[in-house]
């Protein structure tokens, strides 16, 4: 078994997810080579062949050109599997590779099983074991599912690739996230509101509980998308990542993207009417109760 791992860089810097690709290769007990469009002064800790293309030439985001680079390495190395992160870069590039290679694609792998790979279904409420029917397949890995237990070491053997072609998309650079009004990552306590708060007025009781606990309030993505809270309050993959001493999740079912932003909190309390909500998997305490009843009482008792 041989894997081609596709690492990523952003704004000239290697992304840490490359170590997750290496960790996955190890779990698969497979040989691997790696490909990166990135700078030669910021290389992954990796013992193996690294095909390296210059972003000045290939573009840091240019899916059509990156696809050609991958296909070139596939022709040389004949891998059985191409592995990317399930990220904005990975889920964009992977289907392009799958179509070009007539390959099965398996998205957001969370675990390797004897016979196939496990992926989440329905907001991680179920897991599906999938097996590719093609000789070569493309997989993307869920962020954080394959984290090495210790820091990786190693120096790659670099083989430079030359990119050509223009692609059919023009990338015009990055726009930084809005200046955040609140830095949730510095708060010792974060109390977050999810869709389960029901209506925007109920955000007040979440903020009151946060205040009683001398912390800040946060929100899950649906609450921010509905414009009940500003984006700087969003916890999760596309918002802030927090690891406070206490995290209280109110009416948050626990989508993967949210869990990724808070599961390293020291102590997690979830308040949810659904005993089976995925948030229960990371919670130290799960209060199965209507938050609209519990939160005001809790705030009152804490303030007493």
């Amino acid at each position: 078994m041989k894997l081609l791992l596709i690492a990523e860089s952003r704004e000239g810097k290697l992304l840490g997810s490359s170590s997750e690709l290496t960790c996955f290769a190890k779990q698969m007990n497979a040989d691997s080579v790696m490909l990166l469009v990135g700078n030669d002064n910021d290389l992954p800790a990796y013992n193996g062949t690294l095909y390296l293309a210059d972003p000045a030439q290939a573009g840091e985001f240019n899916p059509a050109v990156h696809k050609q680079l991958v296909l070139e390495v596939v022709a040389k190395e004949q891998p059985d599997m191409i592995v990317l992160s399930h990220s904005s870069y990975g889920w964009d590039l992977a289907p392009r590779l799958a179509v070009a290679l007539n390959a099965a694609q398996i998205s957001e792998v969370v675990e390797v099983k004897q016979d196939g790979l496990l992926v989440p279904v329905c907001n991680a409420k179920l897991r599906r074991q999938v097996k590719p029917d093609t000789e070569i397949c493309v997989v993307t890995l869920q962020a954080g599912a394959f984290t090495p237990s210790e820091e990786l070491t190693g120096t790659p053997v670099v083989v430079k690739l030359t990119a050509d072609g223009e692609g059919n998309i023009l990338f015009q650079g990055y726009e930084a996230a809005e200046e955040t009004g609140v830095d949730l990552s510095k708060a010792e306590v974060v109390v977050s509101a999810g869709r389960g708060i029901g209506k925007p007025e109920n955000l007040e009781m979440i903020a009151a509980l946060a205040k009683a606990l001398k912390g800040e309030f946060g929100a899950s993505r649906p609450v921010v998308d509905a414009e009940w809270a500003e984006h700087s309050r969003q916890v999760g993959t596309t918002g802030q990542t927090v690891s406070p001493k206490l995290y209280v999740a109110c009416g948050i079912s626990g989508a993967i993207q949210h869990l990724a932003g808070m599961k390293k909190s020291e102590f997690i309390v979830a308040i949810n009417t659904d005993k089976d909500a995925p948030i229960g998997e990371v919670a130290d305490v799960l209060a199965v109760v209507d938050l609209k009843q519990l939160v005001p009482i809790l705030t009152e008792k804490l303030s007493a």
Partner: peptide, 23 residues
């Protein structure tokens, strides 16, 4: 190009305490 072999709820890893009852 791929097939589903099995579908199941995630194995419960959480050993969290569950509180139920009056608020």
């Amino acid at each position: 190009r791929s097939q589903s072999l099995k579908l199941a709820p995630p194995e419960k890893k959480g050993s969290g305490l569950i509180l139920e009852g009056e608020p």
